[in-house]
Simulated scan of single mutants.
Amino acid sequence: MYKNTLVEIQKFIGLLLLIFIAVSCGLTQDKSASTQVFSDPIAPIGDSSLTIPAAVRPILDVWMRDTYVTYGPDGYYYLTGTTATPGRVFPGQVHCWDYNDGLYLWRSRDLKNWESRGVIWSFDKDAAPWQKKGTPVKPGEKSPNGDPLDSLYRAVWAPELHYIKSQKKWLLIACLNGNNGSFVLESSSGKPEGPYKNIKGNETKAIFDNIDLSFFEDTDGEVYLIGHNHYIAKMKKDLSDIAEPFRAFKETPYESEPYIEGVWLDKHAGKYQLLQTIWSVSHADSTYSYIRDNKKSDKLYSYDVVIAESDHIYGPYGPRYPAILQGGHNNLFKDENGNWWSTTFFNPRGVMGTRFPITCRPAIVPLKWKKDKLMPDAKVADDFYSTLNIK
Rank of each mutant, 00 (worst) to 15 (best):
Ile19Leu: 13
Leu27Tyr: 13
Thr28Ala: 14
Thr28Ile: 15
Ser39Ala: 05
Asp40Thr: 06
Thr51Asn: 07
Ala54Val: 07
Asp61Cys: 08
Arg65Tyr: 04
Tyr68Ile: 05
Asp74Glu: 11
Gly75Asn: 04
Tyr76Phe: 08
Pro86Ser: 13
Gly87Lys: 08
Val89Tyr: 01
Gln93Ser: 13
Asp98Ala: 14
Asp98Gly: 12
Gly102Gln: 06
Leu103Lys: 07
Leu103Trp: 04
Arg107Ser: 13
Val119Phe: 03
Trp130Ser: 00
Gly140Ala: 06
Glu141Cys: 11
Asp150Val: 02
Leu152Met: 13
Ala158Thr: 09
Tyr163Leu: 06
Lys165Tyr: 10
Trp170Cys: 04
Leu176Arg: 08
Asn179Cys: 14
Leu185Gly: 00
Tyr196Pro: 03
Lys197Leu: 07
Asn198Ser: 13
Lys205Tyr: 07
Asp209Pro: 01
Ile211Trp: 01
Ser214Met: 14
Phe215Leu: 08
Phe216Leu: 12
Thr219Cys: 13
Tyr224Phe: 15
Gly227Arg: 01
Lys236Asn: 10
Ala243Gln: 02
Phe249Leu: 03
Tyr259Ser: 13
Leu265Tyr: 05
Lys267Asn: 12
Lys267Val: 11
Arg292Trp: 06
Asp293Lys: 10
Lys296Glu: 11
Ser297Trp: 08
Asp298Glu: 15
Asp298Tyr: 06
Leu300Thr: 09
Tyr303Phe: 15
Asp311Lys: 14
Leu325Ala: 08
Phe333Gln: 00
Glu336Phe: 09
Thr343Asp: 10
Thr343Glu: 10
Phe345Arg: 12
Phe346Trp: 10
Pro348Met: 14
Pro357Gly: 07
Cys360Asp: 03
Ala363Phe: 06
Val365Leu: 09
Val365Cys: 07
Pro366Trp: 00
Lys368Ile: 07
Lys368Tyr: 01
Met375Lys: 04
Ala378Leu: 05
